[in-house]
């Protein structure tokens, strides 16, 4: 599904947080929203998700103007946000419809693809941070969202788990081809995962520039090509002036 934003902005109590953001995501594309903290990345994502309806501008999904939560949109939060009273399997089936057996079969398949088969009966309190986030990935994917919104999904994880889960995300993306919008402040992550990176800057945040990463997948984390992209991203963020 394609996603289009036209001059989207959001004002909190008279103070604009993000302004005039326009971009288009083609079906199956992975778009990165990158910027320093406070530039309105997550605000934009919440507007796209429909959790926040008080934005300005127009958001279109498949050419149709939307306002409110769409069943075809999935959201992965910064924290796993598992329901503590449900076990792993029931957490994954949470958003599914249909009869119990079908739901569980489907959830089981996604749990397997995030490497958690056999942990169905555990409760969230028994999971490590990485495992919980895997369950959250399985839950977000289980409804087969055509647009998947990810709000710094790996930022709370350690470096190794983060890399594992990034690869996992790409793996499931290869088989399901959801359109993804990934909010991140991690330049490495953006360069490794995204087809296109939209760099936001300032307060209120505006689009500083758009960087297309043409490097084919699988990408080499340490490759010089990615390093060049990272340098370009960092240059566009222009961090030096902010500290001066």
């Amino acid at each position: 599904m394609s996603l289009q934003l036209e001059r989207v902005g959001r004002t909190f109590a008279g103070k604009p947080a993000v302004q005039d953001v326009s971009f288009r995501a083609e079906p199956g594309e992975i778009i990165g929203l990158l910027g320093t903290s406070g530039c309105g990345k997550s605000t934009l994502l919440r507007a796209i998700s429909g959790l926040d309806n008080a934005y300005d501008g127009v958001i279109e999904i498949n050419g149709k103007k939307v306002n409110g939560i769409q069943k075809t949109t999935g959201f992965m939060f910064q924290e796993p946000r598992l329901l503590p009273w449900l076990n792993v399997l029931d957490n994954v089936t949470f958003g599914l419809e249909g009869n119990r057996e079908e739901k569980q079969k489907k959830a089981g398949r996604y749990l397997e693809s995030v490497g958690l088969a056999g942990n169905e009966i555990l409760y969230p309190k028994q999971l490590s941070g990485g495992m919980a986030q895997r369950v959250a990935i399985a839950r977000a994917l289980a409804t087969s969202p055509e647009i998947l919104l990810l709000d710094e999904p790996f930022s709370a994880l350690d470096a190794f788990t983060k890399m594992q889960l990034q690869d996992l995300l790409l793996e499931v993306w290869r088989s399901y081809r959801s359109t993804m919008v990934l909010v991140t402040h991690d330049v490495d992550e953006a360069a490794y995962l995204c087809d296109r990176i939209i760099v936001l800057r300032g307060q209120p945040g505006t689009v500083e520039r758009e960087i297309a990463i043409t490097e084919s997948r699988p990408r080499e984390r340490g490759s010089s090509e990615l390093a060049a992209y990272k340098a370009e991203i960092l240059a566009s963020l222009d961090l030096t002036t902010e500290t001066a």
């Binding site: 490497g115 056999g118 028994q126 490590s128 990485g130």
Partner: peptide, 16 residues
């Protein structure tokens, strides 16, 4: 955290 993640996966069966 990483350590607990790894041990979490391998000892998950007994952890229950």
């Amino acid at each position: 955290k990483n350590q607990s993640e790894v041990s979490g996966i391998f000892t998950a069966g007994s952890k229950s």
